[in-house]
Design a protein around this nucleic acid. Structure first.
Length: 272
DNA sequence: GGAAGATGACAAG
DNA sequence: TTGTCCTCTTCCC
């Protein structure tokens, strides 16, 4: 289940596995059949991620635009592709590798103009070299919305999802309800740097791990715990359990339709 | 076997 | 804010 690190990792894997090769493209499930027919046996040029969006480029400036949504997955395998299991929306295959896409909210064939339009509406992505944290700050620093909501808005900041937002706020001791405009710019820049490191580690390991990737004082000297997701986290989905740092019970609340997790004692950083 | 939930995003009201 | 879509896994009966 994907936040931005998943998509960047996927882009790397798809590029390394299929890049500059002629690829069989199909849609066993059927919902992408017309486009798959157009792309079949074309050369896959490369793959790129922006926030939670993935663009797989084929010859002729054709792009497959994928968004995994909440439940989508794109899984690579080696060897001859097996009989498709379940609803495989899109399959790439060569003689030695294959990749199956299931459950995306977006899987469409687009051109360069549509790709540019997607990129234009996204905020800076901490995983992209060209990203500018000041661009996000211009939105955050002017908004009265809670910082926990702003971090999830892809036009403010691209690639952060529910896990990174919860963990980032914890690591910086910030009350999730703090309005964006009450945050100070220096703190935002520290948060950005932290995100860059956390998300790069996520790309490298394929999971979100905010405890082992520890470089804030709060994280020192604590026993890491392996989370259900395979990563180690401070507050995400730990409602009712003791905070690793202070022992207070981790709280949860629905904010903007999503479960938020935080420690009320550690996260008391309030506007001055 | 069925319901609920899950790292997302959009439209409608 | 609510409903909807996407698919799979986990939990409970």
């Amino acid at each position: 289940m994907p936040e931005g690190h998943t998509l960047h990792r996927l882009a790397g894997e798809i590029g390394a596995t299929f890049g500059r090769r002629r690829v069989r493209v199909s849609s066993p499930q059927g919902r992408f059949s017309d486009a798959a027919t157009l792309l079949d046996r074309a050369t896959l040029r490369g793959a790129e991620a922006a926030g939670k969006h993935l663009f797989v480029e084929f010859s002729g400036q054709r792009y497959v635009h994928v968004h995994l949504g909440l439940i989508g997955s794109f899984v690579l395998g080696t060897g001859t592709a097996p009989e498709p299991r379940g609803a495989v929306r899109l399959r790439f295959a060569t003689r030695s590798s294959y990749a199956d896409l299931r459950g995306p909210t977006v899987c469409e064939l687009i051109g360069p103009g549509e790709r540019a339009a997607v990129l234009d509406r996204l905020g800076p992505d901490p995983l992209r070299e060209d990203a500018d944290p000041e661009q996000a700050w211009r939105r955050i620093g002017r908004s009265r919305a809670p910082i926990a909501a702003l971090l999830m808005q892809q036009e403010v900041l691209a690639g952060v999802g529910n896990v990174y937002r919860a963990e980032l706020l914890f690591r910086h001791g910030i009350d999730p309800q703090t309005p964006g405009c009450r945050l100070d710019r220096q703190r935002w820049l520290l948060m950005w740097d932290d995100l860059v490191q956390l998300m790069r580690a996520g790309v490298a390991s394929g999971r979100i791990d905010t405890v082992r990737c520890a470089h804030t004082p709060e994280a020192m000297g604590r026993e890491p715990r392996v989370d259900d997701h395979g990563g180690e986290v401070y507050v995400y989905r730990r409602a009712g359990m003791p905070c690793w740092v202070c022992g207070e019970e981790v709280r949860t609340e629905v904010l903007a339709g999503r479960n938020l997790f935080w420690c009320p004692t550690c996260q008391d950083r309030r506007p001055a």
